[in-house]
Amino acid sequence: MADVAALAGVSSQTVSRVVNARSNVDSDTRDRVLAAMDEIGYRPNSAARALKSGRFSTIGVIMFTLSSFGNMRTLDAVAMAAAQAGYSITLIPVTRPTQGAVTGAVTRLAEQAVDGIVIIMEAHMLDRIDVTVPTGLPVVIVDSDAGSRYTVVDTDQTEGARLATQHLLDLGHRTVWHIAGPESSFSAGRRTASWRNTLKAAGAPVPPVLEGDWSAQSGYVHGVTLAADPLVTAIFASNDQMALGVMRAMHEAGRALPADVSVVGFDDMRESGEFWPPLTTVHQDFAQVGRLCMEKLLRQIDSPGASVPGTTIVPTHLVVRGSTAPRLRNVGDFRDMP
């Protein structure tokens, strides 16, 4: 820094102001300092700056399963929001959702000097086990039930599933079959519960739940079974990928969409509008989830102890496309559902 100051003809304090992006330096002086830094090859020592300020400009992210579309979109949103706030992220995937794995990941992040942690954990876990987080380390939870201990940000899974199910009932379908996500998934559980409650509230029969694993293949396997039953006219899949598998199964069985069967998904993938027919689905605002995560995490970082834990729900909405239509054929009106 002294060499930069000598070359630019300024004080070391002025160089420090430029390095720390302070506003009390005129533009000509700033340009001379930046040119001197470039000529000498000077780079600020981020470790030294962190020790001095107590800030590391890094957010740790712990995430279970990188294969889920929703998780990846949430991670992307958090990373973009962090970058806009001047933070980088350190990602630690957790391959097995156990107490030891999550607590170990938290400990590793704390040792790597992060300012806060975002936990993206769709599995039923944080509501069932005691995850140890170092005292004073800000934490925001996404897509799980952390009770009253932490700040939680999530999309409105319950309302989204209700909108999907009610849409199909409003089209005249006697009932709606459901292909759920894995039993271990917190989001899948809420969507399934909302689907069931919506059918019950409407006085509609409640078919047995078919459990998938979020993949198009699992949707296809269940779709083959449902396609063989001509009384199945409406299906709500818990994500768009499983809905895609269902649509393929219906096509192969010669059942037209949406004339014979209406299908609704969940997520609103970018490709959902390019399916044939374009998929009716529930939109989740992952960008807003990422922004809120960083907003709430930075509030905890900037004002330790001032933030009160609580849950923030981001609204979902139904995007109606060509995969759903009024029921045209009077089938299933007199058969008792399981």
Rank of each mutant, 00 (worst) to 15 (best):
S46H: 12
A47N: 05
A48H: 06
A48C: 02
A48F: 01
R49S: 11
R49M: 05
A50I: 04
A50R: 08
A50P: 00
K52W: 00
K52H: 07
K52P: 01
S53T: 15
S53M: 07
S53G: 09
T58Y: 09
I59S: 10
G60K: 05
V61E: 09
V61A: 08
V61Q: 08
I62G: 11
T65Q: 11
S68T: 03
S68G: 12
F69P: 01
F69M: 02
G70Q: 03
N71Y: 05
M72C: 05
T74K: 01
T74M: 02
T74S: 10
T74G: 06
L75Q: 04
L75W: 00
D76H: 01
D76R: 04
A77P: 15
M80Q: 11
M80F: 00
A81K: 03
A82M: 08
A83N: 10
A83L: 07
A85Q: 10
A85H: 04
A85P: 15
Y87G: 13
Y87N: 13
I89N: 12
I89K: 07
L91S: 08
I92M: 09
I92K: 04
I92A: 08
P93V: 03
V94T: 07
V94M: 04
V94F: 05
V94L: 02
T95R: 07
T95F: 12
R96N: 12
R96T: 14
P97C: 00
T98P: 14
